[in-house]
Simulated scan of single mutants.
Amino acid sequence: MSHKNFPMVPRVIFGRGSFNQLNEIIAPKRLSIHAPFIFLVDDVFKGNTSLLSRISLSYDDKIIFISAEEEPKTSQVDQLVEDIILMSKERPSGIIGIGGGTLLDLAKAVSIMLTNEGESKDYQGWDLVKNPAIYHVGIPTISGTGAEVSRTTVLTGPTRKLGINSDYTPFDQVILDSDLTEEVEHNQWFYTGMDCYIHCIESLSGTYLNTFSQSYGDMAYQLCKEVFLDNNLTEEESREKLMMASWHGGMSIAYSQVGVAHAMSYGLAYLLGTKHGIGNCIVFDHLEEFYPDGVKLFKQMKTKHNIELPQGICAHLSDEDFDIMINIALSLTPLWENALGKNWEKRISREKLKSLYQKM
């Protein structure tokens, strides 16, 4: 058998205040005075001088503010690539993504599409990217998605929601500065943190699990339990631990896969535009039958942090709508195989999925 040769992020810097080292880290990577650095920044930071004053722009460098209200789309990636080509005299020296999973995924996708022909929808899938991406840096400002470490960039395309999974996707450099996650709103903190927790549960109970994944998954799981159930952590400790949980959770999936919650939440995201973290929570809340212990603990965390999940988001859907979501969920074969084994198609039916969606 052949083993997966997994690409990791080659350089990472961790610690409060480490964002201040961004300029000295990227300076040697500048290709010429006409090859700008392009900063893709979550637009919540638009008026945030404490963050923006620390990005020093030289020559033709640009900051592009992007809303993370919606999940990233292939059309959005293509538009950004076009804009960047038009505004730059030469191919950029690098793309720096600053934000949550949406911004990090956009930064990864844009850096790939600047060196690969065609449209980003053509690369949704596994190992379709031919040319290495340009230099790209990931700086998470919220913890949980694992986007800072993964080899995928999840995009909603014209026909499906699927990642560009490739060896060229991971960042060349990541900066993990937990001070950047200080302002995150309570519900958002919970939903994105639960993305990490659900990664762990799906990875650790999956058939793809091996010792590599398990060692990272166990660590992320323990960290999540501390962050969401331990009353003795300071704010700073909680932020640092969640940041590391996100990293380990992302690493855990590298060699395994996610499962039922992610498969079904992709359906919600595609049809209803439900954001990833909250979508995972809405689905996971109903998956006792697949993840009994994980869901039980999730409900405890939900109660402890006074989280009210949206109800009835599928109440008004037509049969066609349910079919669209079910088709998307079932198309994610590796996720089902990880969750239920090689004979997964015998264990999950369209009716079963529909009845689960109807509860949400």
Rank of each mutant, 00 (worst) to 15 (best):
G277A: 05
L297K: 09
L309Y: 06
S318A: 08
S318H: 08
H286E: 10
S265E: 13
I313A: 04
V283Q: 03
P292M: 15
F284L: 04
K296C: 08
H286A: 06
Q311V: 09
G279N: 03
V258F: 08
M325D: 10
D285T: 01
D323R: 12
I326H: 03
F322G: 00
H316N: 15
I328Y: 03
D323V: 11
L287I: 05
D319C: 08
H262S: 10
I282V: 11
G294E: 05
M301F: 07
G312W: 01
Q311N: 10
E289T: 08
G259Y: 00
E308D: 15
M264G: 13
F290R: 00
G267Y: 06
A269D: 05
C314I: 10
H305Y: 05
G273Y: 10
G259V: 05
D293W: 08
E288F: 13
K275W: 07
L268N: 02
Y270C: 01
G279L: 05
C281Q: 12
A269S: 14
T274R: 01
A261C: 11
G294H: 06
S265L: 13
I278D: 06
Y270N: 00
N306R: 08
M264S: 12
E289N: 07
D319G: 08
K299Y: 07
G277R: 00
M325K: 09
E308T: 15
K299Q: 12
G277T: 07
M301D: 06
Y266H: 14
V283K: 02
D285A: 04
Q300C: 02
